[in-house]
Write a protein that binds this DNA or RNA. Structure first.
Lengths: 341, 341
DNA sequence: AAATATATGGAAAACGTTTTCCTAAATTTG
DNA sequence: CAAATTTAGGAAAACGTTTTCCATATATTT
């Protein structure tokens, strides 16, 4: 039925192994023979059977991307697809494909990863830190199975991971504010139980303090990350006797609320009051004016993860360290260099 | 190195073919033998090599999901991941995996699809209507290659597709408004070049007219889908001598703007003015009050696509028709049953 | 001119299953 | 009780490549 390497060999008058060598650009084939083979391939419209190649090479050219998938995933985790796209686009360069695998129904963390490794259905594995346990982690390290963990795992190991650093992003926020000459800055955060919010707050407050601009307690407000509470927070801050010159909003939803609150006061941004926020998604696109953002680009994080994966695929014994994706400042119109009078 | 079916056979004292039959639940194996084999499998911690199974079965148990992937994909196409998750979760039930494949760099529509089919690297293909051409389409049909097209292709064929119906969603909007006794309704749409916007508008205006509530030209405003223009549109509408009782917003960004505009007028929703919008993503989550939404759930669309795919995988000769994902009304607080006085 | 090195391409094993027969034993039937 | 049927399990082919050797022919060196 389907045309195989043998058909090509017969038509070209060579052996199947020669065809294979031509296909894989071996140097031991003369240009003349190669041309004959290519001619036959063209005539027969031959494509190697990927399943047979996988089998013979003992490699699927597939990488598994494990994450917990639920209904409305994009809503709950707007970043995951971006990470995945970054990984994909990097792996694609070396002809690897990315398989989306759900880890949400596993009975213990690491079950899915284990299955993939033992089945050998993928050459490598990209997995969220929460979907892996210590035993599988150690297995990955011991077997030198190419892997990269998104977000560092909550157990110590010699796994290779890549993570964001939200405290650092908080420090970036402080640095930007100070560089604009805003030294009287407030912080509107999310819930105190929200780890990311807490880290950003710590980084921000820490660096402000280090520069000598300690942020008073009254300039730090925690909300439920809703637009309404954030707007109220902005109104509270701006009605103080000593209102802040700028506000750091812990996420884009808060920023949307804060910008709304500011609008209500009639003050103009950034002339009277400046603000910045973190993350491009999901809401910064509808905030007016276009906000200055400290962004941790998830696509870039995916690209980095992909690069690490490619290196590990090439050399599984490679001792690769772990990485942190650096935040990036996206200058918008909600902050500007301020010539304080 | 790795333990194979032969090791299991040797330990269990049977032939490899018997082990295979046990693995695949053949009925021609006695319970006693099966137990012996399972025992050996357990002892050796054996897992069949997926690459070898793929090869022997001539099936990869992989389905390719083709879409044009770019940087910031989630931002540009917030729906794609939801569709993908829906497809995934459905396919997972029959142990199929989903491979994410980029079609953005192909030199002609259908190139990527062709490659996958000729390589036999997937058992089926889910592809966006824009990433396929007529010749590949006909090839899919002729070869009975399991496929499902997301969004119907722009050429006629006997392909199997699944699509949304935005005109129908527009009709749903009209129906809901009328059922609330809002008969004086305005429409704020996107650009006239935006196909989805135009379809929703046509459906909405059409049904309003059919019910005898023709919407005057002056109650239809086109914007660039920005928050600013949408807010301005709302202000324009509400300052007319005969302002609308309700507004249909063509997308969530417009709805965000309209709600902002309404807020500026000081009118209350839905007491004085009602509105509804389409799509849950990306912005409806931050609109206040919680809007009534005509939603076309993309995850559900993916689930439907996955179901069709499973049926085609089981029986490739199946003549499956194409499907339309129906819109769903999500009642929010921006509309209510109105007792007009 | 003989000896050695190099270039080219083929034969055959290997990859690890599944699946199609086929056989021998066990069971049923007349 | 013999013949027919059913059952259980094994032998071997098949799936389509890659890759390791090996053989031959040609080129190079002494």
């Amino acid at each position: 039925m389907a045309v195989t390497i043998n058909d090509v060999a017969r038509l070209a008058g060579v052996s199947p192994s020669t065809v294979s060598k031509v296909l894989n650009n071996w140097s031991t084939i003369s240009p003349a023979t190669a041309e004959k083979v290519h001619e036959a391939i063209r005539k027969l419209d031959y494509t190697p059977n990927a399943r047979a190649v996988s089998f013979a090479r003992q490699s699927t050219k597939n990488i598994a991307f494990l994450t917990a998938i639920t209904r409305n995933e994009a809503y709950k985790n707007p970043h995951m697809f971006d990470i995945m796209c970054g990984v994909h686009n990097e792996l694609e360069k070396e002809n690897y494909s990315l398989m989306l695998i759900d880890s949400s129904r596993e009975t213990y963390p690491g079950e899915t990863a284990e299955k993939i490794i033992s089945q050998k259905s993928a050459d490598g594995i990209v997995v969220h830190g929460s979907a892996i346990n210590e035993s599988v982690g150690n297995y990955l390290v011991k077997r030198q199975f190419p892997h990269i963990i998104i977000g560092h795992p909550n157990f110590s190991s010699r796994l290779c991971w890549i993570d964001t650093n939200h405290a650092l992003a908080g420090e970036f926020a402080a640095e930007h504010m100070i560089s604009c000459n805003y030294t009287n800055v407030a912080f509107v955060g999310g819930r105190k139980s929200d780890l990311i919010s807490v880290q950003r707050e710590r980084g921000f407050l820490g660096l402000m303090g280090k520069y000598g601009y300690r942020v008073p307690q009254s300039h730090v407000i925690h909300t439920d990350s809703s637009v309404g509470e954030a707007a109220a927070a902005a109104l509270t801050l701006l009605s103080k006797k000593n209102p802040p010159r700028a506000i750091v909003c812990e996420n884009s939803q808060i920023a949307l609320g804060v910008s709304k609150g500011i609008e209500k006061t009639g003050k103009s941004v950034p002339k009277d009051i400046a603000f910045l926020t973190f993350d491009t998604y999901p809401y910064s696109g509808v905030i007016e004016p276009k906000p200055t953002i400290i962004d941790i680009n998830m696509y870039d994080m995916g690209v980095q993860a992909g690069q690490v994966m490619l290196r590990k695929l090439e050399n599984p014994s490679l001792q690769v360290q772990s990485y942190t994706t650096l935040p990036v400042l996206l200058q918008g119109e909600s902050t500007e260099m301020w010539e304080s009078s």
